[in-house]
């Protein structure tokens, strides 16, 4: 069996050992995660493995099979050029299936003055793009994939791995930011075109700082601008669906989520452009976030 090469990443409270069969994605990971704290003691919460799905796939049309401590039986392999995406999916998988220290909400988060804005919705809602955009406009980026809700304190912890920009969001962010903030363009992945963006230096430096949840939004892209109030039952149900480990946390998850729903004001918002969304978000933030 081929030995694997490994690198260790610390993202928010979680530590990963990424073990790969190839050198190229490893170098890329190291470069893009160079500003993150370096866990040099060998401890990891999870191992992610990126290996050829068949031995010859190491060399011939190399394709990456994603596995690790936690894995799914039917994960489709990705071409080697999309190794960075494979690493990201591998880390998401470990968190979604294995992390129990927080209630995980599939959501993006940004912070201002110690208060967190959480945005959740189906893929295509634009929550990731909005968090990347706000992260360059005076907010601290806390993550575009998972918001980590602490059952003991009710605070949100950051999981600020690389932002994964999709399709039209790529060009929009490229206009604003220098090239060295980006990874390579990954064309035609299962999720469309993807380009990874390094979060702002402040987001990485302060990644261990939690924030108090102050506003929850359910954005929806591509509709006439609108703001809709939501009932608590609807919010609760949608958050249980947005959580990967609500059931796994049992009573602690129930208590954390019901308290969250009681305390955090929430709105559904529709928008058609980043500028529109920003305007709505700022208005709601001033009005509702306390």
């Amino acid at each position: 069996m081929n030995p694997l090469q490994e690198t260790h990443l610390a993202i928010g409270p979680a530590r990963f050992r990424i073990a790969l069969a190839w050198k190229q994605p490893l170098e890329l990971l190291k470069r893009l995660y160079a500003d993150y704290p370096d866990p040099d003691d060998g401890f990891a919460d999870f191992t992610v493995r990126l290996e050829p799905d068949k031995p010859w796939r190491r060399f011939i049309r190399p394709s990456v099979h994603i596995s690790g401590d936690f894995w799914l039986p039917d994960a489709a392999p990705l071409p080697l050029e999309q190794g960075l995406l494979a690493a990201e999916m591998g880390m998401n998988l470990q968190m979604a299936l294995g992390w129990r220290r927080h209630l995980l909400l599939h959501a993006s988060t940004v912070e201002k003055d110690g208060r967190a804005l959480i945005m959740t919705g189906l893929s295509g809602s634009g929550k990731s793009t909005l968090s990347a955009m706000l992260g360059e406009r005076g907010w601290r980026f806390m993550g575009d994939e998972f918001a980590l809700l602490c059952p003991d304190t009710g605070q949100i912890y950051a999981f600020p791995r690389l932002v994964s920009l999709k399709n039209s969001a790529i060009a929009a962010m490229q206009k604003e930011l220098p090239d060295d903030r980006f990874g390579p363009l990954l064309k035609a992945t299962p999720k469309g075109d993807i380009r990874h963006l390094k979060p702002a230096a402040e987001a990485i430096a302060n990644m261990h700082e939690p924030a108090r949840p102050a506003l929850l939004l359910f954005p929806r892209f591509g509709y006439e601008p609108a703001i809709r109030k939501m009932g608590q039952s609807e919010i609760f149900v949608r958050l249980t669906q947005a959580s990967t480990n609500y059931v796994a946390l049992g009573e602690a998850g129930f208590r954390a989520l019901t308290e969250f729903v009681d305390q955090v004001p929430a709105r559904a918002i529709d928008y058609q452009s980043g500028a529109e969304a920003e305007e709505i978000i700022n208005r709601l933030w001033d009005e509702l976030a306390s």
Partner: peptide, 11 residues
């Protein structure tokens, strides 16, 4: 066990 040893054991 050191850090790497623990990570191996857990995996």
């Amino acid at each position: 066990l050191d850090g790497a040893g623990w990570t191996n054991l857990v995996s």
